[in-house]
């Protein structure tokens, strides 16, 4: 079997249109991400129909750019990998359909990739020597989970959110405070000017199991602002962010101990949050384990991680069937 080493990855699960070429699941030759954030900002969140249309317009040029930046021709691509879930159905369909069409035209295998699995491989693209088992904290607008990664393709979700995802709480709190979208970077920046100890927001389930709950925290923010309309938004942002980071890190740390992890790694859009990054590193130093924080570009949605995960999938399970459908609620 040829080794199908040069893989084109395509990612369109939410609001980023991305394509990348990765060699042997490890070497990123190109990674192009075209964000739609400005398109969605005036609505305070991703608008699915706008997202699907934008993917349709952007995907062809983004794929072409990824191939050119890799210094390749279309004929150098050995396989096409695309995210088939979880995500927004209309957006996923654009990427999956494009990937299948390219695979058929180029006569190469198509492989469907679980977006969450992609995030698990993101760290390895930047740090191939990461030791396993690894406790991965995946936090984004749609997901909040702790994954015990024992090996490539071998992982177990040990906890996830019972209500809102952490990133969703960021977006909703930012929208409630009238700060705009996306909530993560805006709150992160505003929090620099605030006092993280100003308001003692609740830490739901902090010391209890590995599941998360952020709905109550969101409600507490709303309650506090209703009662104190003159409160400094920077203090609210800083205290809210502190509460989120505190819970995430406390659980990741406790899980790493219980599962004998060699280190903690973070992924997903919220992993770009500066307070969370600082808190994870502090915890790892204190506990004497590895802490790995992928670059912000690798934490957020990108296609390099999809190409990498696709390479592993292709070599463990072979190509996907060409009738593989998009699955908006696919789980790990």
């Amino acid at each position: 079997m040829s080794d199908f080493s040069q893989i084109l990855g395509i990612e369109t699960s939410c609001d980023e249109t991305a394509a990348a070429i990765v060699v042997s699941g490890q070497t990123v030759r190109s990674s192009v991400v075209s964000s739609q954030i400005e398109l969605h900002a005036r609505f305070g969140g991703v608008v699915p129909e706008i997202a699907s249309r934008a993917h349709v317009e952007l995907l062809t040029p983004v794929v072409a750019q990824a191939v050119v930046e890799a210094g390749m021709e279309n004929s150098d691509v050995h396989a096409v990998a695309a995210t088939y879930g979880p995500g927004l159905i209309g957006s996923l369909l654009v990427g999956v359909s494009a990937a299948k069409a390219l695979a058929l035209v180029w006569d190469v295998p198509f492989v469907g990739v679980n977006h969450l699995e992609g995030h698990l491989y993101a760290a390895f693209l930047e740090e191939p020597s990461l030791e396993l088992p690894l406790m991965v904290l995946l936090v984004s607008g749609g997901h909040t989970m702790l994954v015990n990664m024992k090996g490539p393709g071998d992982y177990e979700i040990i906890g996830s959110t019972v209500d809102d995802a952490a990133g969703e709480a960021y977006d909703k709190v930012a929208r409630y405070l009238g700060l705009g979208y996306p909530g993560g970077p805006i709150i992160d920046e505003l929090a620099n000017e605030g006092d993280p100890t100003a308001i003692d927001f609740p830490r739901a389930m902090r010391n209890d199991g590995y599941d998360f709950s952020f709905s109550g925290l969101k409600t507490s923010v709303v309650n506090h602002v209703r009662k104190h309309p003159d409160v400094d938004a920077a203090d609210v942002a800083a205290s809210f962010q502190e509460a989120v980071s505190d819970v995430l890190v406390a659980k990741a740390r406790r899980a790493a101990k219980e599962y004998g992890s060699k280190g903690i790694c973070i992924g997903g859009g919220v992993a770009a949050n500066s307070r969370l990054r600082e808190a994870v590193l502090d915890a790892c130093v204190e506990d004497g384990i590895q802490g790995f924080l992928p670059s912000r570009a690798m934490c957020t949605d990108n296609a390099a991680m999809i190409a990498a995960a696709g390479w592993y999938r292709l070599h463990s399970d072979g190509p996907s069937r060409i009738d593989l459908g998009a699955n908006p609620s696919l789980s790990l």
């Binding site: 809102d164 995802a165 969703e168 709905s215 709303v222 609620s329």
Partner: peptide
């Protein structure tokens, strides 16, 4: 925001015998 719409749905679903966790549908719609 925070009024308890998802909490309401959790109680509603459990009473109908839903055993999976009912989480916020904001992301997936």
């Amino acid at each position: 925001l925070g009024a308890g719409k998802t909490a309401f749905t959790q109680g509603f679903g459990r009473a109908l015998g839903v055993t999976q966790p009912i989480t916020s549908p904001t992301f997936t719609l």
